[in-house]
Design a binder for these strands. Structure first.
Length: 476
RNA sequence: GGCCCCAUCGUCUAGCGGUUAGGACAUCGGCCUCUCACGCCGGUAACGCGGGUUCGAUUCCCGCUGGGGUCACCA
């Protein structure tokens, strides 16, 4: 049977970094085996679901490059892909279950059930409350009621997990769980099973926080006469303090990292290495991941999210041309340049400047800052740097100007050789003359190498900037 | 608390009976240097505890301890 996996987010917020990881593992598996990656929106909770979240999640997935083969906005033969549009199907399946006795209508209210639970807890503080109904038969289907699944009293339910192996839970622990709410909407476990089957999903890969749902789902597959899919649960990504990852203890939105100037490749790389490994290798291109990913290399233990490591992994992606081409770099940094008013930068100069900042820009936000003086004419003069242009430094700039005019070709090695020769013969220290030159050229106290900067700027702009530096130095 | 799961440096991990227990991030030194970076070299740092099994356990089994998840008309 052809591999079909899915990512099924509920649109009640931004795409969580943990959710992105789940999506990634599913996507990788589909891409590796030529399977189908389905996106399904689990919007059965009317209260929490909202269209802004749907938008945000789609945007984040697209930004990460996790494209779906079937789902909202791309279609497919198994739609609709919003659960809110599939209610007729859930109702129909629920009726079938009631008809064959696997489920029953229950008109016990939430409050009554809470009371039952409380009473039980009062008497058995150490026991587990298990609801086994119906305590009261709901004879009138027109009255508000939920539909509950009749869990077998005996035996155990087991399944084989692709990462954890065999897992089994005694049925005596399981309450008669709700399939359909009184408002007619299905509950997660039920909708997921109905849809995963209807959509032909062959492997359900999700976070480990879902292992407790799996027995209930397996029970449902059995009751419906469906063949259960394979299951794979991912170890959890916890916050640095060991608690469940949340907005309270970390930046958890994929959005957050995009805004701070991380590249999608870097984000994916960090996420996949969290729980999966390939020997000692740390950095992977997307293509490598598709080729190398496998479930038998997925570990079982939860881990703690590490911002520092994340930052470093993503820096590697920005640093290496084989992972981020100059063209990709330029287009990724464009929005950040635009944010500082550089909406239509000189493309050729930008392309030339990028190699000089790769080792310096840890994020695209930093990249835009480092690129700024290359692309702005004249460059912004940093107030802290200006004092370095004293009258005494003007002769240095004059000499460099002369060298710039004479040197052919206008290339870094030749420029550097001539300038250094002059510096040495003058008995000055390179470090004393370099800073004034840097300030004249860039307006800053720190920048890429002087001669690389000159070459990127070209002879004309270099001379113009040196002239400006001389004017500032001499106060004219 | 019931049920389920997990356990190697601070963190992510390699290891699948015999290794000086490896890598990466972080951290601490040093080198390189026109600034800032990058890079390079080196240091500190881990098998939770107790029983087995075995000639030999980080590795296999059991218990303990510790950690996590989950117990809704949320997903």
């Amino acid at each position: 049977m052809a591999l079909r996996v899915r990512f099924a987010p509920s649109p009640s917020g931004y795409l969580h970094i943990g959710g992105a990881r789940t999506a990634l593992f599913n996507w990788l598996w589909a891409r590796k085996l030529g399977g189908t990656f389905v996106l399904r929106v689990e919007d059965t909770d009317q209260e929490r679901s909202n269209p802004e979240s749907v938008r945000a999640i789609f945007d984040a997935l697209r930004w990460l490059g996790l494209d779906w083969d079937e789902g909202p906005e791309v279609g497919g033969a198994f739609g609709p892909y919003f659960q809110s549009e599939r209610r007729a199907l859930y109702r129909e399946v629920a009726e079938r279950l009631i008809a064959n006795g696997a489920a029953y209508r229950c008109d016990l209210t939430k409050e009554e059930l809470d009371q039952l639970r409380a009473d039980y807890k009062a008497k058995n503080p150490k026991g587990e409350f298990v609801y086994r109904g119906p305590v009261r038969e709901c004879t009138d289907p027109t009255k508000p009621h939920v539909v509950r699944f009749r869990v077998p009293r005996e035996g155990a339910t087991h399944f084989v997990d692709k990462v954890f192996g065999a897992i089994s839970t005694p049925n005596s622990e399981q309450s008669d769980f709700v399939l359909m709410r009184s408002d007619g909407f299905p509950l997660y476990n039920f909708a997921a099973v109905v849809d995963d089957h209807a959509m032909g999903i062959t492997l359900v890969a999700r976070g480990r926080d879902h292992v407790g749902n799996t027995p209930q789902q397996v029970l449902l597959y059995k009751a419906l006469g469906f063949e259960p899919p394979e299951f794979a649960h991912l170890p959890l990504m916890l916050a640095a303090n060991g608690e469940k990852l949340s907005k309270r203890n970390a930046s958890v939105g994929v959005q957050d990292y995009r805004d701070r100037g991380y590249s999608p490749g870097g984000v994916l790389n960090y996420l996949v290495r969290f729980g999966w490994s390939h020997g000692d290798q740390e950095i992977f291109s997307r293509d490598e991941l598709v080729k190398l990913f496998d479930w038998d290399r997925v570990g079982k233990s939860d881990g703690k999210f590490d911002e520092k490591k994340f930052a470093d992994v993503q820096f590697e992606h920005l640093k290496r041309p084989e992972l981020t081409s100059s063209e990709d770099y330029a287009s990724m940094v464009a929005p950040f340049l635009a944010a500082r008013g550089l909406t239509a930068p000189d493309g050729a100069r930008l392309a030339a400047a990028i190699p000089t900042i790769r080792d310096r820009a840890h994020t695209l936000v930093e990249a835009a800052d480092l690129l700024d003086f290359f692309l702005r004419e004249p460059p912004v003069m940093d107030e802290a740097a200006r004092p370095l242009l004293t009258p005494a430094t003007a002769p240095y700039l004059e000499t460099l100007k002369m060298i710039c005019v004479e040197t052919e070709p206008f290339a870094a090695p030749a420029l550097e050789a001539r300038f250094k020769a002059w510096v040495e013969s003058s008995g000055i220290k390179m470090k004393d003359v370099a800073q004034p030159v840097r300030v004249a050229l860039t307006g800053r106290k720190a920048s890429p190498g002087l001669f690389d900067v000159m070459v990127v700027l070209g002879r004309k702009a270099t001379l113009d900037r040196l002239d400006r530096g001389i004017r500032i130095a001499t106060g004219s």
